[in-house]
Amino acid sequence: MKFGVIIFPGSNCDYDAYRAVKDVLKEEVEFLWHQDTSLNDCDCVILPGGFSYGDYLRTGAIARFSPIMRRVVKFAQEGGLVLGICNGFQILLESGLLPGAMLRNQGLRFACKYVYIRTEATATPFTNLCKENQVLKIPVAHSDGNYYIPEPELKRLKDKSQIIFRYCHPSGNLDPVYNPNGALDNIAGICNEKRNVLGMMPHPERASEKILGSKDGVYIFRSIVNFLKREKRF
């Protein structure tokens, strides 16, 4: 089983993601360069947080056209597992692998703090080890995390249980006070219809060891390993 972490010009959570896979999961992992056109047989591709191409125009708008993304889109269409964290989520939205778009945070502040997110669906490769409605403590760090999607598509997301994480009170209540960016319906993470692509604003790799303040992000990484093993791919 091999994970790949893509490095875009400006990625700054690439090493955090690499470390979470290598030292916490103890699984094989390698870096993939944005100019590459091969995923080197990786079974799960992580688009890390940070910035990409200066995030000129819109976050993720230029990265979407990088050579590796053409390969990632094909990989996702073939059922490969893709996890986009923060800027990675923004790139997945721009590339059309996930529906919707990001607006500037309400209040225009850079939101950098621990938040609580409620697991809204566990039937995914990314949350199968979480309990229904389990609350995870994971940090966010972004300016553009104000998720938006037009009404008819929001209904489709709900109908197909594609909303995977919502910002919440530590008890699990969906209080708008605990929404750090004004995202529609407290949405913190969504998956595609086939459920093999997940985008989330909070950073699970920054919450993967006790010394970091939380280990809750490990549920997500371990779920991926569990899924790949269960699929008898390993």
């Binding site: 607006l103 500037r104 945070n105 309400q106 209040g107 225009l108 104000n146 938006y148 004004g182």
Partner: peptide
């Protein structure tokens, strides 16, 4: 421009 009805946090600030 942002579509009508889409919140514009910069515009409102």
């Amino acid at each position: 421009k942002l579509k009508d009805g889409v919140l514009d946090p910069q515009g409102s600030t």
